[in-house]
Amino acid sequence: MNGYSIESHLKAAGLSFDALDIVEKTFKVNGVQKLRGKVVGRLGSELRREYANQNGEKDINAVSTGCYCIGIGGEYQIRYSDGFASRVVYIGSGNVYGRLKSHLKDKLFDFAHAMRGIPLTFHIADLRESKLDHKNLEQMLLDKFKSNSGGSLPLLNKNNAVNKAMDSPSESKLKAGWDKPLHKDKGKQVAKWLIEPRNFDEWKGILD
């Protein structure tokens, strides 16, 4: 699910990130949170419509047990260590829609503010009818990311999904595409720009 821009929803509300900065400096925090809430509500409605369109009218709000990856879209990837690059910035799990809205209302909004015009992407796995535990899949994705990146976690992750080793199925027993968000871009999807923060630690763990 690609192309979700907080900036575009700000414009639809007659605002911009710059205008929001001025409001934040001028008015009480409560007023700014209401504006954020309005924008996130717009984006949340778009996310629900798009998920329903792509998944046989299923409601993302009903995905009480799932796993998700947040990435950046457009022509951009994050440059990690040793020449590794990826669109993925966070891997999480739980009640998907509730978690995403919580992220968007808080630190993911700040991240989008820093990224400005670069849209967010969301990959969602509904595990309600799966025997695979959502924390298990989250950890498998984190392990695969670390293996690809030479040990780095996604930009906004600081911790593993679990604090101790857990039994995980072999990759051969999982459905094809379980790690699709981690695949390299091909063809026209290949990113043209690599970007990186000046300080990775500034963003580590903001969604954990």
Rank of each mutant, 00 (worst) to 15 (best):
N2E: 15
Y4G: 04
E7G: 04
S8E: 14
S16N: 04
D18M: 09
L20K: 01
D21R: 08
I22W: 07
V23C: 07
E24F: 01
N30K: 12
N30G: 04
V32D: 01
R36S: 04
K38Q: 11
K38E: 15
G41I: 07
R42C: 11
S45F: 08
L47P: 02
R49K: 14
E50S: 14
K58C: 07
D59Q: 11
D59T: 07
N61W: 07
V63T: 06
G66F: 01
C67R: 02
C69K: 00
I70A: 00
I70N: 01
I72C: 00
E75M: 01
S81T: 12
G83H: 09
F84V: 09
F84Q: 06
F84I: 06
R87H: 05
R87L: 04
V88W: 04
V89R: 00
Y90V: 12
S93E: 07
N95D: 13
N95T: 08
L100F: 09
S102A: 13
K107G: 07
K107C: 10
F111N: 07
L120T: 12
F122Y: 15
L127Q: 04
R128T: 15
L132D: 07
N136K: 08
Q139D: 08
L141Y: 01
F145Y: 09
F145N: 02
N148A: 11
N148M: 14
N148Y: 11
N148F: 12
G150C: 09
G151I: 05
N157S: 05
N157R: 03
N163H: 14
K164C: 13
A165L: 14
S168W: 04
S170W: 05
E171Y: 10
K173G: 05
G177N: 03
L182G: 02
L182T: 03
D185P: 03
K186L: 12
V190T: 13
E196V: 01
P197H: 08
P197Q: 06
R198S: 11
N199S: 10
F200M: 05
G205W: 06
D208K: 03
